[in-house]
Design a protein around this nucleic acid. Structure first.
Lengths: 128, 128, 128, 128
DNA sequence: GTGGTCTAGACCACT
DNA sequence: GTGGTCTAGACCACG
C-alpha cells in the first residue's frame, strides 16, 4: 500500500513506486503487472488515474502493453538499469547542487551524509 | 536572473532563491530587499507572483515589512540559521531516503557522494 | 512471420498480410489457406484472433469456406483485382491528401516520390 | 471546424490538425493557442480531451505552457521543420512500402502519383 | 482567467 | 477478461 503525499500528483507517486519495485527486483523483467482495475481498487483510486500512470510508464519504455492480455514489465534489462541510473543521478544532482547553494563545502557535505546514513542505518537495525 | 523550472510554482522558486541569498550572506540581516515592482520587472514576472513570494517569506518570519519604508531581511539571526538547517535537513532526508529506496547501501551512498562532490568541485575550480 | 504493430488490431494486420499474399500471387485463386490452429500457432497468437481475421476476409468475399474441407482463396479473379484497386486507391488518396495538407505542391509531391522509389529500389537491389 | 473520423481518437485528430496549422503557417511560432475551455466549446468536445491533445503536443515540444497564462506555439522553428519532415516522411514511407507490397513497380508508382496529383489539382482548380 | 489533476461512470475494440 | 477513449463535472494552484 502506498501512502499518498498531497503535494505530488497521485499518478506520479505510483509511477515512482512502481519504478522502485522494478529497480529493486520485486517486479522482474517480463512480469505481468496488475491490471488497471485491479490496482485501482487495491489503491482505492480511480481507474483513470492508474491508466495515466501506466501510459506514462509505457512512454518511458518501462512497461509494455499486449493487447487484450495486460501489461508487462519490459524484458530489456538495459532500460531498467537506465532508470535506476537516471533516478539516482537526479537525486544526487539535486542534493549536491542544493547543498552547495546553501554554502556547504565538499567535505561538509560528505561528513553530513556519512552521519545521516549511519543514523538511518541504526534506525533500521542495519548496523548491529 | 533565475531560470524558471515549469514544474515548480514560480513564487516558490523565488522564495528559495531569496532564502539562499540570505543564507550565504548576499542578503544580510536588516538589509532592504527590492520592492515588488522592482523585482517583478527584473524577473519579468507578474507583480502578484512577487507579492505572494513576499507574503510567504513574511509568514515564515524571514522578511519584515516596515510600513512606508519597505521590506527588510529579518534581524534575528537565529531565524536565518533555522532556515538553513531546515532546508539542508529536507535535502538530506529526501536524498538518503530516495537512494535507499533505490537499493543503495550506506557505503555506496557515501562513495557516490564523495565522487560527485569531487567532480562538481573540479567543474567550478574549487580544487586547485 | 509478421511484426505486429501495437497500434493496429492484430486481426487487421493479418488480414492485410493475407490480402497482399493473394494480390502478389503467393496465394493463388482456389489455393487452400492454413487452418485457424495452424496459423495461430505459427504466428503465436490467439486462435480467436485468427478466427476473426478469416470471418472478415470471408465477409469481403476473399476467402470461401468449404465445409469439412477448409478455407480457400476465392476463385473469382475479379474480386482479387478489386481488392488490389481498393487498397491502392486508399493508399494514394491518403498519401496525396496528407501531403497537400502539409503544404506540398503537386510537382514537389511527384519529385519526392521519384526520389523515394529510387532509393527504395536501390536498397533492395532492384536497380542494378 | 474539424470533422471527426470515428476510427481515430479525437485527441489525435486535433493534434494532427493543429500540427498542420502550424506547418502551413496559420499558427506561427510564439502564437498563443486557444485555451482548453475555448477549444473544447468550439469543437463541442470535452475539455479533458482537449487537455490531452495539448499535453501530447507539449511532450513533442510543439507547444509550450506558461503557467497561468496559456499555451504558445514553440518559438523554435527547427522543431516545426522537424515535425513537417517527420509527418511527410511517415506518409511517404507508408505509401511506398504499401504500394510495393501490392506489387507495383517503381515506374508504375510514379505514374500513378502523377495522374493522381493532376486530377486532384483539377478538382481544386490549380491547373487552369 | 489559465492549466493540472482527479473522480465517476460509460462505451468500445481486442484477445 | 484486458486496455483505450471519452464525457461530465469538480477542485486546486497559479498569475
Amino acid at each position: 500500500m502506498i501512502e499518498f503525499d498531497n503535494n505530488l500528483p497521485i499518478y506520479m507517486q505510483i509511477m515512482s513506486y512502481l519504478k522502485k519495485q522494478i529497480i529493486v527486483g520485486k517486479l522482474k523483467p517480463s512480469d505481468k503487472i496488475p491490471s488497471v482495475r485491479e490496482l485501482a481498487s487495491e489503491l482505492q483510486i480511480n481507474p483513470n488515474t492508474v491508466q495515466r500512470t501506466f501510459s506514462e510508464l509505457e512512454r518511458e519504455g518501462i512497461v509494455e502493453t499486449r493487447r487484450g492480455l495486460g501489461r508487462y514489465v519490459t524484458s530489456e534489462e538495459s532500460i531498467i538499469m537506465g532508470i535506476k541510473k537516471e533516478m539516482a543521478g537526479e537525486l544526487i544532482e539535486h542534493f549536491i547542487q542544493g547543498m552547495q547553494e546553501l554554502g556547504f563545502a565538499s567535505n561538509e557535505i560528505i561528513s553530513i551524509v556519512s552521519d545521516a546514513v549511519e543514523s538511518k542505518g541504526e534506525e533500521r537495525g542495519d548496523n548491529p
